[in-house]
Design a protein around this nucleic acid. Structure first.
Lengths: 251, 251
DNA sequence: GAAACCTCTGAGGGCGCTCTGAGGAACATG
DNA sequence: CATGTTCCTCAGAGCGCCCTCAGAGGTTTC
């Protein structure tokens, strides 16, 4: 799995930043150190300032010290209940956004009221792209989107993606996508003109526990081409032996 | 800490604001910390400036300090009776609006006497959508509605909802809805063109103590479709794997 | 006290989504 | 040109999401 230790955002894109210009601060709370590592790696890759904690008490202490803008919080923690942690966090920092991580079968358990407060949750196993997207959504709504490029819309050439409405259009025409197709295209659109390897795409778009082959990526690229490039000037290109690129059409 | 986030509703909708432009100030008084947390989260999401108190004494002190425009007040408090708190509050701030939270089979007669004074009440267990709607109604009637968009009418395409008259029309035709259908539609209409997950809808439209499955949401969406979309161009759309969207018909 | 209405549970079924496998096309290399 | 590699696409199976119906239990209304 690709875990970059970079402290800077990937090239070409401005980082989502706080109003004072410093990077967004995120706290990752999970008792599985491997998962915490993968998550924080992915978030650092976004150019964010990431800390981690393994339990609720540490999380609250760390939050008081670090003053994060957002917290990625596993509901199943060794010491406390997620709801109590949420309350403590909001006590320490009222404006903090929280993204919960929860097991699929425990979804209905006690998430009640959480999404109503503007917070959000993601079920395990999740894809990193999903976590990042949700987190960006939370931060944007909390007024963290000061910079220009990164609104709720993603634009590459005449291709436009509206994340909230979950709508994609090319040259004004609506394109209907399945969930996986949508996430794949979002990943491509967030990295235009950049060759992405199949391994990279798998790590990002598919769940971390996906055991399948890289062949699925080819398949879904082919699905996307049929919908996005259908009869038009192609934007999705194959780079043999390297991966795929999304490029705006040259004029 | 982000101060601007307090003034901006996370929902992206224009906030109901006070005549001087500052956000509406609300005090939540409930001895159940979980419920207080959920309530204040939902109200903050509306862009309001929220404080909480766990008992009557704290509530009065907080009100004197914070000067709220409205108070959400549990009738059953550990130290004092809610009505005593009301008297104290009116002593501190005569113009304050009060929304009572009360058990279903509680003293409805005394409540009735109170609400004659322009205040309102909601019975437990309530939905957040109901609390927010009542609070908006109180604030609007108290002259807090200076903004343009959010009157008593909600309009999406040819679909119109009059909240106070509890009337819904599409293309001029009256549509009769049950209470739950009405609240669900209001939630959809307050978030047009925005995909809402079943969890979000459950958290918002159903009571906080509802233990059921997300399956009900599907059921009520189907009820709504039969009434709102019946034979017309559909406005309610399913986004597989994500949720539902209400969209005005493309012109 | 009966009727009408509302809300939710459970079951059944349709169909969209995801992935596997296989065959063939396109490309690189000798 | 021959051969191996990489990639594309089709077909289809399995699964899970979603829709709908029918009916029980509760509430409101008259």
């Amino acid at each position: 799995m690709l875990v970059s230790a970079m402290n800077t955002p990937r090239s070409g894109r401005p980082a989502l930043s706080r109003p004072d210009g410093t990077p967004v601060r995120v706290l990752v709370v999970d008792d599985d150190p491997d998962l915490a590592e993968v998550l924080s790696g992915a978030l650092r890759y976004e150019g964010w300032d990431v800390r981690t904690a393994g339990d609720g008490a540490t999380a609250v202490a760390e939050a008081g010290d670090h003053m994060p803008d957002a917290v990625v919080l596993d509901v199943m923690l060794p010491d406390t209940d997620g709801f109590a942690v949420l309350r403590s966090l909001h006590g320490v920092q009222p404006d903090v956004c929280v993204l919960f991580l929860t097991a699929r079968d425990a979804v209905e358990d006690r998430i009640a009221g959480i999404t109503a407060g503007g917070d959000d949750y993601v079920t395990k196993p999740f894809s990193l792209e999903e976590v990042v997207a949700r987190l960006r959504g939370l931060l944007r709504r909390a007024g963290m989107a000061r910079q220009l490029e990164e609104g709720p819309r993603l634009v590459v050439g005449d291709l436009v993606m509206d994340d909230e409405a979950r709508e994609v259009t090319r040259a004004g025409e609506l394109i209907e996508l399945s969930p996986t197709e949508f996430e794949l295209l979002r990943f491509l659109m967030r990295n235009p003109r950049r060759v992405l390897s199949k391994a990279q795409i798998l790590d990002r778009v598919w769940s971390y526990d996906f055991g399948g082959q890289a062949h699925v990526v080819e398949l879904y690229i082919s699905y996307l081409r049929k919908k996005v490039d259908a009869g038009r000037e192609p934007m999705i290109h194959t780079v043999r032996g390297a991966g795929y690129v999304l490029k705006p059409v040259v004029r």
